[in-house]
């Protein structure tokens, strides 16, 4: 009888996932309809709800398009970056980002070499790859001895290869973690403040879509560093890719 209970639990979980996906899909369809009708704020809201329930690259691409068409460059660039985060092979997000950055005259974020490497695959793929390669290497080295099998000629090279892949994925994983601190300015002429206060002195104003790295936070403010300066910005004016 124990296995009956297990099957029932799996079925319930699967049903919950399917229901959740169904609602996210509904919002996606509503977003498509609103976009077609030119109701851009409503379309953006629908796509955003869909993305919150189930983040998907296509949903985020559409969200970016809706935001761009209603004049919110920062939110559009963030949405496309999120789409590329989920699926680096999605050419639409990349193309839209290039277009938007040319039109809005903003730069791409500057990535370090390990961050660039981490963009070759989706973030979760690096995590699984790291785990799989590590334990494959360890298994190839340890298990034959334990089970008293003779080591074949391919055991060691394969273990070495797996370990090498693991070392590489380590840097890519560091890059993934590092890239979660990259974000984009959402508001036009967002003030960059000297102190994390509402009445802080304004150092400069930032363009919507400008990339920056979050270094720390305090209250409702984030300390960010752009390519040229650093300062505090309100949480509502800055969006992180991995958020």
């Amino acid at each position: 009888m124990r296995w009956h209970r297990q099957i029932l639990l799996v079925a319930v979980l699967f049903g919950a996932v399917i229901c959740r996906a169904g609602t996210a899909n509904d919002y996606f369809k509503v977003g498509l309809e609103m976009s077609g009708a030119g109701q851009l704020p409503e379309a953006a809201m629908a796509f955003e709800k869909s993305a919150q329930m189930q983040p998907a690259s296509g949903t985020l691409v559409n969200l970016g398009i809706a935001e761009w068409r209603r004049g919110r460059a920062g939110a559009a660039i963030l949405a496309w970056e999120k789409a590329r985060w989920i699926d680096p092979f999605d050419s639409r997000a990349g193309a839209d980002l290039k277009f938007a950055r040319t039109a809005a005259q903003v730069d791409e974020p500057e990535l370090k070499w390990f961050e660039t490497a981490s963009t070759w695959l989706p973030p979760n793929a690096w995590a699984w790859l790291a785990g799989a390669s590590l334990w494959l290497a360890v298994g190839l080295l340890v298990l034959p001895g334990i089970f008293r099998r003779r080591k074949a000629g391919w055991h060691s090279p394969l273990a070495a290869l797996a370990f090498g892949i693991f070392l590489f994925t380590l840097t890519a994983n560091v890059g993934v973690v590092s890239r979660t601190q990259i974000g984009f300015v959402l508001k036009k002429n967002a003030p960059l403040l000297l102190t994390p206060t509402r009445t802080g002195e304004v150092i400069s104003t930032l363009t919507a879509g400008e990339p920056a790295r979050q270094l720390r936070s305090r209250g409702n403010f984030l300390f960010i560093r752009t390519q040229t300066e650093s300062g505090w910005i309100g949480r509502d004016a800055f969006g992180l890719v991995g958020d």
Partner: peptide, 22 residues
Amino acid sequence: PLKLSGLALMPGKTVASLKPLQ
């Protein structure tokens, strides 16, 4: 590119959360 891409007709690749596994 000289213009925006068209709307995606399907949600595409999904993830449970944007927060990476790491």
